[in-house]
Design a protein around this nucleic acid. Structure first.
Lengths: 349, 349
DNA sequence: ATAGGCTGTCGAAGCGCTTCGACAGCATGC
DNA sequence: GCATGCTGTCGAAGCGCTTCGACAGCCTAT
């Protein structure tokens, strides 16, 4: 293991000079700098992370807390995680992977031990237990003992109360509205929404409820009827759900699907029932583009910008760590891409 | 930030005593221990990770290198990653998430900086550039400068040469054999294999080639004909592939699918062509159980034991770090579950 | 010519922890 | 009664780095 002292000796300078070459915090003459850099290369020196964290009071590590459960949107999570890791590296940070398993204790542990300088939380619930530990600013009821001692953090997802928090998320409400708007514009009057598994709503994951809100309020404005049904993935569950929907609203001609594992079953079942897409029924999905393109019918969809969410989260966090920028809620504007699964509503019989 | 010294003062003992209470490396009287533990709880003390790493020469961090690309098996990777994180925590380790992006440099950086004590590599290629840096033992041509200074590591996946390496993987060759065996036992004589995207074979990812080897050699033994076709996911690509297969081998009655995103398209296209599953053609998939169960036909499949792979990888690594156990290749035995997609071959026309 | 200001470098302190050797106190063996 | 061996605790050194203050050397302004 090569140390700074060895580099210093090799280059014929003092340890502090090497340190300043590395950090650039004091000016160093060009010749000395080059000599030191040469030694670093020759010896294959890498600064010791522990020593650096101890002396410098920052670890250059960002903690990323991913949900333990994998009941939804796994590829989206993975994409976010990878975008976080990549962007973090680009800013000189490494990423520590935490699972939701430990809950708030993980936050305390990481904060207390100085393991990470900051945190990114995914899959935030509306009333998340971890939030009191992260809330900054002058929020009442915060659990920290003084201003400025809380862990800088960014949430991917939106809790009920965002006071003193920085959040990045897709604007789910606008997403819902956009779907309804598209279908309403095509003349559809009865729309069914096939949602996530009931468990997702029960644990009050914000995005599902917000989407629904957007969906419903735009439906009200455009005079469209909306029927929402949560649904487990898979064929059997969807067959049941679909039967109930047509039972209750036989005139349904538009579908909004927010559940990756219901997309293909829906298309298959509709086909099987002799309902043509998009001639008889239109389908709009809320899913990553890749899913929309690979489906048996190229789906009109609102994309989930996973990469962008990961990237933005890191960039905000880095800004905070650099003392730039404060708390803020960033909502990404949804974009709807028209593909082959949506068209004009059929003439009423 | 609470320090060890503050805990010591609060408990009325010396710093070293607190340290020994924490580590258990020397005997401490019950009363002193309790007093110290009480202080730790009252003050909410967490040992500083950097200081610990510096003084103790280990960071209690395991690096996990995941592939950057997400062109295959994303849920499997995620499941492995989560299993790694969970198991690692159970052994007192945290997990650092690295992407393949930096390649061998990441290995050097992590090794050199003492950021992590050990590494787990996923998605290992047959001739992986990172391997020379990790090979231990007396392997010739290793790049380390002396025995014992290489990073302990475990690979998930099997490279061409495993000398001096520890690997955990599903026995893909046995997996291929198992699929053929099952179909041959049902009387199928012409089997088509729908594989991963061509790119996966081109980059010599071991599992794909090994599966094929197992498939072919068992086919030879059982007198079955095998036609292998790589395939991008999605409907269009699969439609083309399928047409070619039936063109070349009209008597094909058995399919082995090793490509998650080809499963559903295959079932849909077969249905569309009037070929009933399993009456006319049988399908065996190599995929996570969840996919097999959620498909439109419950699929006979060989499961990919993602959790187990992650868990075993960590356990081996921890054993190595504790000085127990050495290099070893662990191949998990595949298990085939018969579901509704496979049955006796139809009588020859 | 001299005071003052820069620049570039160095030495030393200290970050919070682990660990080694020392040693006090006590029980044991003869 | 004294050497012996434990047990439990302490002090101090040191891990590799950052950073502060000091200061030598030189340039500019008066």
């Amino acid at each position: 293991m090569v140390t700074l002292a060895e580099v210093a000796q090799h280059a014929g300078v003092s340890a502090s000079t090497v340190s300043y070459v590395l950090s650039g915090k004091r000016s160093i003459s060009a010749t000395t700098r080059q000599r030191v850099e040469q030694s670093i290369r020759e010896l294959g020196y890498h600064p010791n992370a522990g020593a650096r964290a101890l002396a410098g009071k920052r670890s250059n590590i960002i903690a990323l807390m991913v949900p333990l459960r994998t009941d939804m949107y796994v590829p989206v999570m993975m994409e976010i995680a990878i975008a976080v890791a990549t962007t973090a590296r680009a800013h000189g940070y490494d990423v520590l992977l935490l699972t939701g398993e430990e809950g708030p204790d993980a936050v305390r542990r990481v904060t207390g031990s100085g393991l990470a300088d900051a945190m990114i939380l995914m899959d935030v619930e509306l009333e998340d237990e971890r939030l009191p530990l992260l809330r900054g600013g002058d929020a009442p009821g915060r659990a920290t003992s003084g201003p400025g001692d809380e862990q800088p953090s960014v949430l991917i997802g939106l809790p009920a109360d965002t006071t003193g928090l920085t959040c990045v998320d897709l604007d789910w409400s606008a997403t819902g509205a956009l779907c309804v708007e598209h279908l309403a514009g095509l003349g559809h009057r009865d729309i069914a929404v096939i949602g996530e598994a009931p468990a997702v709503y029960e644990r009050h994951t914000g995005f599902a409820e917000r989407t629904l809100d957007g969906l419903r309020s735009r439906a009200r404005e455009t005079g469209v009827r909306v029927l929402h049904r949560p649904c487990e993935g898979g064929y059997d569950a969807l067959a049941l759900t679909l039967a109930r929907i047509f039972d209750e609203r036989p005139g349904t001609t538009g579908f909004v699907v927010q559940n990756e594992s219901a997309v293909e079953p829906l298309l298959a079942l509709l086909r099987q029932q002799g309902r043509a897409v998009p001639e008889d029924v239109s389908v709009v999905a809320i899913c990553p583009d890749q899913v929309a393109v690979q489906a048996s019918v190229r789906l009109t969809s609102v994309a989930i910008p996973a990469q962008e969410m990961g990237r933005r989260a890191v960039e905000h966090l880095v800004a905070k760590l650099d003392g730039r920028g404060g708390d803020e809620v960033v909502l990404l504007t949804p974009e709807l891409t028209v593909r082959a699964s949506s068209g004009p509503a059929p003439a009423a019989p």
